[in-house]
Design a binder for these strands. Sequence first.
DNA 1: CTAACTCCCTGATAGC
DNA 2: TGCTATCAGGGAGTTA
Length: 274
Amino acid sequence: MPELPEVEVVCQGLGPLVRTRKILSVSFSNKKLRKPFPRAKMYSRVEGSFILGVERRAKYIMLRLTGKSVMLFHLGMTGKIGLFDRDSPRRKHDHLRFLLDNGKEMRFNDVRRFGCVEVYSEKELRENDPFAGLGPEPFSEDFSADYLLNKARGKQVPVKSFLMDNRVVVGLGNIYANETLFAACTHPHTPVNRLSRLDWQRIVTKSRLILKKAIAMGGSTISDYENVSGEAGYFQLELAVYGRQGQPCSRCGQPVVRSVLAGRATFCCPVCQK
DNA sequence: CTAACTCCCTGATAGC
DNA sequence: TGCTATCAGGGAGTTA
């Protein structure tokens, strides 16, 4: 489900709903997510704490808590966070429930269980940074044509796989990597060492444009993404190539072609993207 | 080292 | 109706 725009929309929606709220108790399902629940830390660091704020880093949702604690959520492919009345019926695949001091419950639901939840103290965060090794945020100055040109030196990975690599840049997943390359007129299979500084500049500019627009439109709902209020996004209506194999390219009318790159569905217009 | 492949898991959909 | 195969927004780990 969620790439940078979807995670950003969730964070923006969640913040006002939970900021200043106290977490009274935590409940777990009997199935583990990608990693086992950090139960001990949930009881010692999360229960009884207040939520100070919600931020996004890469595709993580970060809740800052009193007591110098941080709780991280990763939505994986099908993770969802929502606010519900404490007595409302639980849904299938609700794996975590946080009872708040206003009668609401924050619930983490994840069908495929590729998501995860972690709890850190600020000290642990500094000493054992879970974000170490991640590349820059797409909207940061560090994400530049020069940076990419340098990072790509001597590598032959296809540019689409490169953009989806967290160590290169965070937040771009399969949808937005495909869309960025279409907008930048760059073929997804191009080995990265063949791209010029100008090519990279186009990629930087277009990726930011697309991510920004996707955030403004509430993200892309392909099958089941929804924001904290259970609403779908609209950016899927704007997708130029993702999922559109056989349909005419919006620029030249030739059919969009689907291929597979590193096991991921890849879409491009072989005429417009060189 | 790089790049490709495999696996984690459930559910929707297509084809027989 | 029901079976089987394929595919899905991510990412970590293994293999050649």
